[in-house]
Every structure is written in C-alpha cells, then in structure tokens.
C-alpha cells in the first residue's frame, strides 16, 4: 500500500521530502549515493589543493583556491542534504574513515603538473557536471535542491580548467607537452567516472525506477564524450583513444574499451593515492579534535553563564 502510493508519487514526478514515507532501500540507496557524492567533493579538494601554493600567477591562485573552496562548500551542501535522511555527518565521516563509504575513484590519481589543474577542471568537473545536471531532477527533494545549487556554482569550474588547458596548449613546447600528458592521464579515468557499463551495473534498476538516477551510466558517459571531443579539437590536443570516431548512424562518437580491471582495482583501494587521500582526511580530522572539543566546552560554559 505505502509502497504503491510512494511509487505513484515518484511516477507523477512529485518530489519525496524528508518526512514522507519511503522504502528502506530507497533511503539506503540515497544515503549511499549522496554520501559518496559528498565525500567525493571533500576528498576531491586534495588533488587540486596540491597545487594551490604553486599556482603560477596571482589570478591563477585566486581562481584555484576559490574553486577548491567551492568543493568544500558542495560537500557541505550534500552532507546537509544527507542528514535529512536521519544520519549525522559524524557517522558519514566515520564510514568514510572505516572505508565503508566510498568516493569517486578519479581522486585517487596524483596531480603531477600544473596542466593537471586544467585537465581536472575540464574533464573531471565536466563529467561531474553532466551527472549533476541530470541529478537536478532526482526524486528526493533535498538532493535535487542541493544539485540545483551546486550546478549553478560549478558553471565556472569547467571553464577555468579548459582555459588553463587552452592557454598551455598554445604556450611553449613544454607547456603543450604538459597539457597533452595531463589529457592522456586523465581521459580514461574521467570517462570511467560514470561507473560501470549498464550491462554490469546491478543497482541501476531500482535507482531508475525510483528516479534517483534519471539517466544511465552509459547515456551520461556518451553525452560527456560527445561534448568533449570537439573541445579537444579546438585547442589542438588529441584524446588518447585510437577508436574514437563519429558514428553517423548512432549520431554519437564510438569509443574504445575502458580498462575495467584498473577501475575496480582503484575502487577497491589499490590506486596510486587511495591511502594518502584517506590518511590526509583522517589527519585533518584528528588534528582538529582538540579545536572542536574546545569550542564545545566554551559553548557549554557560556550556556552555564546564561542560566
């Protein structure tokens, strides 16, 4: 009964709100997906944070810092939305630290040159935006609202990355080489950000039925690739996929095989930076404990003074 009227509401495109009845699995799916999304924003600060102190101009410094700071903000919007499902941010962070919750694997790759700031903005944010635009129509109200806000703010992220790439691609020979190298390293991990192919993605079924996800992994991936190929051409860089070509019949680009072995290996903890990313996050959390305790104690004393 409840389940039926829940589905009716979904089918009628009416948003589900925190106090509405929802199936346990819907709640669980949302907590998993939204917290993974939040953790990705927060862990995602690190690879770019790696270059803030080395940004090559005053302008570049301000832009990169503002962007990475936005990611912290977006993490917070998402934690805030996830909390409406009855789980605290502390619990979510604990799940991350205990490796029960995941974050996007793309952030387990190292950033080795300034061009990586370009590649991340252009490709990683580009891919994230395709996904997030689609999620603005997700069925859970707080998630949808967070996505609307995030999409609005992220519009400059991809542009700043593409600008860096464009600038470097038309710069000195060394710069162009750095730009191409960054594209080579980040291309495949970026298109794998959309997750496994639909044929191997067991969870897609319910997520589509409940309209948590609005488009499948493969649809989103295709849309990202179709958008990006032309952008690479404009700045004279080559996407590292010999099988990439326009398919007139499909009206889409065909592309080569993705290395799913590597993907799953990184997802399962064996990527170049998995341990460092988590250790960094834990250290910040642990180093901050005395500060949080002090603030709580101060607040407690102030309350006592009032009473």
């Amino acid at each position: 009964m409840l389940e039926e009227s829940f589905q009716e509401q979904i089918d009628a495109e009416r948003k589900i709100e925190p106090k509405d009845w929802m199936p346990d699995d819907y709640r669980k799916h949302l907590i998993r997906q939204m917290s993974q999304h939040a953790h990705s924003e927060v862990i995602g600060m690190q690879p770019e944070g790696n270059w803030i102190t080395r940004a090559p101009s005053l302008r570049a410094k301000m832009i990169l810092l503002a962007k990475v700071q936005d990611e912290a903000g977006h993490g917070l919007y998402l934690y805030s939305a996830t909390e409406t499902l009855g789980i605290s941010r502390e619990e979510l962070v604990q799940q991350l630290h205990e490796e029960k919750a995941k974050y996007s694997s793309i952030f387990n790759y190292p950033t080795l040159s300034w061009a990586d700031m370009g590649a991340i903005g252009w490709l990683v944010d580009g891919a994230a935006i395709v996904n997030q635009v689609s999620l603005q129509r997700t069925s859970y109200g707080p998630y949808s609202r967070a996505m609307v806000k995030i999409c609005k703010e992220e519009s400059f992220h991809q542009r700043q990355g593409y600008e860096i790439m464009a600038e470097m691609a038309k710069g000195t020979a060394e710069q162009k080489e750095m730009a191409q190298d960054a594209l080579n390293r980040f291309w495949w991990p970026s298109i794998m950000m959309f997750g496994p192919q639909d044929s191997d993605s067991p969870r897609t079924g319910n997520a589509m039925k409940w309209k948590i996800k609005r488009q499948t992994n493969d649809e989103l991936r295709q849309s990202f690739i179709d958008k990006t190929v032309g952008q690479a051409e404009v700045i004279g860089l080559t996407i590292p996929d010999p099988d990439l070509k326009w398919n007139e019949d499909r009206g889409h680009y065909d592309f080569g095989e993705m290395n799913w072995e590597e993907f799953w290996s990184v997802v399962n903890g064996n990527g170049p930076c998995n341990k460092q990313r988590l250790a960094h996050h834990k250290k910040a959390h642990d180093d901050g404990e005395w500060v949080r305790n002090a603030a709580k104690e101060y607040a407690r004393k102030q309350e006592l003074l009032l009473n």
């Binding site: 927060v42 960094h280 910040a284 901050g288 404990e289």
Partner: peptide, 12 residues
C-alpha cells in the same frame, strides 16, 4: 591557503 583541506571542521 596552506590550510585548504586541513581545517578542523569543513565549515572552518
């Protein structure tokens, strides 16, 4: 700017 991603809370 060295603090970025190392703050005691995400808000801070």
């Amino acid at each position: 700017s060295e603090w970025c991603s190392k703050g005691p809370t995400l808000e801070e």
